[in-house]
């Protein structure tokens, strides 16, 4: 590891420290934000960026050794694809549970209907939605 040029060592170290600190910031946001939707915001962005920093450092090290570095690239791609999906499903679960938000009550969306995401709460009064999850 010490035979690398100095700027490459500095780049890898900067990526590592940035990744670790972003992961820590995401966890602090997860712990300290006020309601669930804000807590959903914090780790889904910061943790992917943190893990992305760490894996980017791994990629740079592998490239500096003359290897391909495909595994960190695969992991980064996988995390960047799956993080919005899991966040979307968690938001669906929270809307289904009716968790309170500090931004006011959630609009009564038909969350199961794809392509029907137009916010029109006046058409659909609260309590008149058909039962979901059948």
């Amino acid at each position: 590891m010490t035979q690398l040029p100095l700027w490459l060592q500095g780049l890898v170290a900067l990526l590592l420290v940035t990744g670790g600190l972003f992961t820590l910031v995401g966890a602090i946001g997860l712990l300290r934000f006020g309601d669930f939707y804000m807590r959903l915001h914090a780790p889904t962005k910061a943790s992917t960026l943190g893990v992305g920093g760490v894996l980017l450092a791994a990629m740079v090290l592998a490239w500096a050794r003359g290897e391909w570095g495909l595994q960190p690239l695969l992991i980064t791609l996988f995390l960047f694809i799956t993080a919005p999906v899991s966040a979307h499903l968690l938001a669906q679960a929270a809307l289904h549970l009716g968790l309170p938000s500090q931004a006011g009550p959630a609009p009564d969306l038909p969350i199961d209907a794809p392509g029907d995401a137009s916010v029109d709460a006046s058409v659909d009064p609260p309590g008149a939605t058909p039962p979901r999850g059948d």
């Binding site: 997860l30 807590r39 968690l90 679960a93």
Partner: peptide
């Protein structure tokens, strides 16, 4: 530095997992 920061982050997530008020909070943690 990065290992200590990530370990601290895991500790904070475990705290949120412990006292998450709802199920969705625990799944997120």
């Amino acid at each position: 530095v990065a290992t200590v920061a990530v370990a601290l982050a895991a500790l904070l997530c475990a705290l949120r997992l412990w006292r998450g008020p709802s199920v969705a909070d625990r799944i997120l943690a």
